[in-house]
Nucleic acid binder design. Sequence first.
RNA 1: GGGCGAGUAGCUCAGUUGGUCAGAGCGCCUCGUUUACACCGAGGAGGUCGCGGGUUCGAGCCCUGCCUCGCCCACCA
Length: 906
Amino acid sequence: MTTMPKAYDFRATEQRLYEFWEQSGWFKPEAAKNPNAEPFVIAIPPPNVTGELHLGHAMFVSIEDLLIRYQRMKGRRALWIPGTDHAGIATQLQIEKMLRDEGTSREALGREEFLRRAWQWKDKYGGIITQQLRRLGASCDWERERFTLDDGLSRAVREAFVRLYEKGMIYRGTYLINWSPGLKTAVSDLEVEYNEEEVTLYFFKYPLKDSDEFIPVATVRPETILADTAVAVHPDDERYAKFIGRTALVPMLKREIPVIADEAVSREFGTGALKVTPGHDANDYEIGQRHKLPVISIMKPDATLTDEAGPYAGMDRFAAREQLWHDMQQARLTIKTQPYTTNVPRTQRGGEIVEPLISTQWFVRIKPLADQATQIVRDGQIRIIPERFEKVYFNWLDNIKDWCISRQLWWGHRIPVWYCENGHQFTGREDPTQCPECGSTQIEQDPDVLDTWFSSGLWPFSTLGWPDETDDFKTYYPTDVMETGYDILFFWVARMIMLGLDFTEEPPFHTIYLHGLVRDEHGRKMSKTLGNVTDPLTVMDEFGTDALRFTLLTGGTPGNDLNLAISRVASNRNFANKLWNAARFVIGNLNVTADGGRRTVDDEARTTTDERPITDEYVERYDLPSRWIRSRLNRTIHDVTGLLDDYQFGQAGTLAYEFVWGEYCDWYVEMSKLTLNGDDAAAKHNTLATLVHVLDQSLRLLHPFVPFVTEEVWQHLKRAGGEFTEDWDDALMISDWPKGGGFDDDAEQRINMLIEIVRAIRNARVEKKVEPSKKIAATIVVGDLQEEFAPLAEMIARLANVDEEQLYIETSITDKPKDSLALVVPGAEIYLSLAGMVDVGKERDRLEKELQQAEGDIIRLEKLLSGSFAERAPANVVEKERARLADAYARREKLAAEVEGMTQAM
RNA sequence: GGGCGAGUAGCUCAGUUGGUCAGAGCGCCUCGUUUACACCGAGGAGGUCGCGGGUUCGAGCCCUGCCUCGCCCACCA
């Protein structure tokens, strides 16, 4: 027998198989059988270089590897470009933490030393994440691995910046931006998150100059009073009309500011009067522009106050808030405080409150790029799956604001702009040594670096060698599918499209597939503080990579979040085991029958790529179950292929799963035992050929979903298969995708009926509590004689031996067997000899019920078919209903006769 | 304030041109060792498909209103 253990051991196979694949070079597109095949390319969403594997990674690897393996098997030159992202803020934070633990800081080290340490860190931890992607089975071409800060990509970033700069698409300016005091850098609008929080709303008096009167004002950030440059009221507000044009005094500072009127003030909110702080509030900034108000900035990068804050200079923003309020209370300038719920802006990374600050930063003029990016999707040149995200995409691009791309960090691509001592500003593809305008050699590079997303926005082409016209770029660009989480549609996807269109004049991919977030079992977001984080490595340790992958692929739908239920992972591990054991069965039989059971295999029997129609010869060759399973296989191949081409991965996987488990294992393997037990060598041979063929094709269908177990099983099958498998490829992963053959409706119909009959008998046996091992005699009446049913039904349903003439298959009978239990299924009647086991009264009730049901069906169907349904509904649908009606008539007749017979017997 | 998604068996979820669509897995109940598999096999219980209208011969599936939960965008101090 076989040496395969009873249970599939993924621990013993996964790593070995991955190394086998990778070392064979099959992850490279150059390994394609046809060197001129059409390429299929995916650029990986680059994980943070120092990141750790989480379920989001597992999700994208599952989907992208599925796509890549599928297209590879279909013969495309499949290329999955791997790589990592330097992830500016995230990585710099980690390095700074390390330095803090060492008792030093980036400031103490200086820029150069800091970067040296950062690269050291990257070299140490940068390999971990890619190692973990391998663990997931990712069939990336690792020889093409890239990193956003490597030389090639840095050159791409430089080129991109210079081009935009020269076109006037990049500018430097002083504006109100989002400032992160913790990170001490500007962040873009997207990096600010608003959370509803309980804060305090402070009401106070704005005193007027030369008067005892005051204007009541409310604010949630009292410290910004110090930067006020006006008090504004609504022009139509009678309460405050008299103050317009007068002068107010900033509390404690007694700085004189005007009282102005502006439509932007809401009369209903707070006191109806507004303090205007152009230096620290976006709306106020606009009001300030309208009224030409001065802009005062009271905050330094670390959120301590500047000299403008007078006595509060040097204090932290929150300390200053308290102190100022205290002082104002002393000065009787306060009115009251009250709790207030509002959206507080916090940085995505650090989590501290973002401060709107006036600052000089670099921006990309985004509108022209956004318009192009909108158009390309509207034109259908890029398709987004699921489609609803197109609306979200359009909405964001339509309201886009210029992109702040400078960051006050050290870890990243330094902005390639230099300033000379004479105030000239210039860029260059190469680092300059002197000013191109005045020739001064006293030049200094801008200290800032670029937003991480600037470099990732170039990813699909920078990884292929752009801006050079490399072979890779020419061959593999544009890529095909961009697969990633919907949460980075704006951050990353939109920017790749904008920059891709601008630099390469082509959409960087034609399809965007967005997956959802992986949540915990009950739909909660996974977080360390909640303690509900599922580590994919732990899951893989326990259930195997295939089980995790299959769960992620079939457990949800595109664009929707997925609640990961461990019980599903467990059941998918069981599925891997099922495949394993089906193979053990097949392989065991191959070995056992090595002597007498086999005869020479001809091409006809092997049929790994049969496209042929169902011929007489074919029908002659294969027994009914084999014809049935081959036909079902062909249908499954057809459907799974269609679903995959339509990006319906979950459906495709489920279908293949159900075929393998529910039809091949549950029925065909069982039925094959009959033939394998017999002594018809030719029949045995054909059944074995079918067992091998269907398993092989099923493994191919499933390989993109569960690559490890399918490869392992396939290798065992290949080794044991002898003449059946001698022309197979070296590995499943490089085998051809199944083409599928014709459908054998006749065989399907017959086996379906057999299955119905067997189910009815099994059901009756359990209901009547017949010993499982006890054989019972039966008569089966089927319209058209199905002699093949006898031995199959005998075996599967444990009916009495046909040779003892206790199992009859008839086309019709005149007298019902005595003391029998009647069962009626569509197209057949069954009489089980259960002498003495049947309670006639109960039995009559049961049949009565079935009779009523049949009558109900008849009434419903007659009504349906007499109405306009028959005219309006499609012909095939009507036909189906007609057939059901005919069957109901037949059932009614049989059942009525039964019931009557039993009533008399009583 | 605007937009989107979800609400289907106890739990986690499928269900794409409206016509066996009322399903799967897990859990539960009864049985069970026949050439693979107890990570198994056979059988079973369990749902008015969130609620109300409407369109249609026919609606989880389309339209409309409402309820609950979640998310995104905007951000009136």
